[in-house]
Design a protein around this nucleic acid. Structure first.
Length: 257
DNA sequence: ATGGTGGCACCGCCA
C-alpha cells in the first residue's frame, strides 16, 4: 500500500502535474489539501478519466480536501464537527481494513489572533474525532498539512521562528496531544535531523535552493501501520523550482492492506 | 535587505 499527501494550493492550477505524478508514482491513496474549489467545480472527470477514484470536500477560494485512490472507498466521512461550522478541512475514507484521514489544519494566521485560537481548538476537535471513531490498535493513517513544525529540526532557523505562527509552544502542545492518541510520525521513523522540508518560504527569492523550509506535511500511522511501514520519503513537486509556493509530496510505503 | 510571491476573490485576503 502506497500512501501520499500533497498540498495543491488550487487543484485546478496543479491538475496537470498532479495527474502526471499519479501516473508516475501509482499511489493507492493520495490526500490533497487546499483544493480551493467548490464541489460542483471540482475536476472530478479528469481524475476518473485517468482511472482514479476521487472524493472531495471543498469550498470556494480556500481550504478544501480530496482523496484520490485506486479502489473505491468502502466508507466516507467529511468534515470535523466544531462550533457547528461547515468544516471543509477533513475527509476520511476506509479502504478495506485501512482508514485514511486527510486533513488541512488551519494555518492560524497570527499568534494570539482568533484564527490562532481556532487552530488550537481544531486540533482538540481532531483528537476527539480520533478518540470517538478509532482505536490506536486498528490500522489508521492520518496525513496532511498540519501547519506546525513541531521540533527545531522541522524548520530552518528555529530560533528565529520560535514563538511565531507554525512554531509556537501552544501549537507544539496541541499537536502533541493529537499525536499522543497513538500516532507515529512515519517520516521520522526513517529520517532524523534538520533539513528535511516539505514547504519553502514563498516570499524569499531562492528559498528552495537555500533550503529555507518547513516540514509541515506529515503522514502518521497507528502502531499496526507504523510496524509495516517500510519507507517514507519527501518527493519534491515537479514545478517546485519554478513555483516556490508549491508544497511537495510525502510518500509512505506500507506492506499489506 | 523587516523585503519579497501566488491563487482567488473582487477592488483585499490568505497562505
Amino acid at each position: 500500500m502506497r500512501l501520499a499527501t500533497y498540498n495543491a494550493n488550487s487543484i485546478r492550477v496543479r491538475l496537470p502535474s498532479v495527474l502526471d505524478w499519479l501516473a508516475a508514482n501509482q499511489p493507492d491513496v493520495l490526500g490533497i489539501q487546499e483544493t480551493k474549489v467548490d464541489d460542483p467545480e471540482f475536476p472530478a472527470d479528469a481524475f476518473r478519466d485517468a482511472g482514479w477514484h476521487v472524493e472531495f470536500h471543498g469550498q470556494k477560494a480556500r481550504n478544501g480536501v480530496a482523496l484520490v485512490s485506486k479502489s473505491a472507498p468502502d466508507e466516507l466521512v467529511k468534515g470535523l464537527a466544531l462550533d457547528g461550522e461547515d468544516d471543509r478541512r477533513l475527509i476520511a475514507a476506509r479502504y478495506g481494513d485501512l482508514w485514511v484521514v486527510n486533513t488541512y489544519v488551519p494555518n492560524g494566521t497570527q499568534v494570539g489572533s482568533d484564527k490562532f485560537e481556532y487552530k488550537l481548538r481544531w486540533f482538540d476537535a481532531l483528537r476527539s474525532f480520533f478518540e470517538s471513531r478509532f482505536s490506536p490498535d486498528q490500522p489508521v493513517v492520518w496525513m496532511g498539512d498540519v501547519n506546525v513544525a513541531p521540533t527545531p529540526d522541522d524548520v530552518f532557523d528555529s530560533e528565529k521562528h520560535l514563538g511565531g505562527i507554525g512554531h509556537h509552544p501552544a501549537e507544539f502542545e496541541a499537536l502533541a496531544k493529537v499525536v499522543g492518541w497513538g500516532w507515529t510520525d512515519l517520516f521520522r521513523k526513517f529520517h532524523q535531523g534538520p533539513g528535511h522540508y516539505t514547504f519553502w518560504e514563498f516570499v524569499i527569492r531562492g528559498s528552495v535552493s537555500k533550503n529555507l523550509g518547513w516540514r509541515i506535511d506529515h503522514i502518521y500511522g497507528t502502531r499496526p501501520v507504523a510496524e509495516r511501514c517500510v519507507d517514507c520519503r519527501i518527493d519534491k513537486a515537479p514545478r517546485l523550482q519554478e513555483r516556490p509556493s508549491d508544497h511537495t509530496y510525502v510518500v509512505a510505503d506500507v506492506e499489506g492492506f
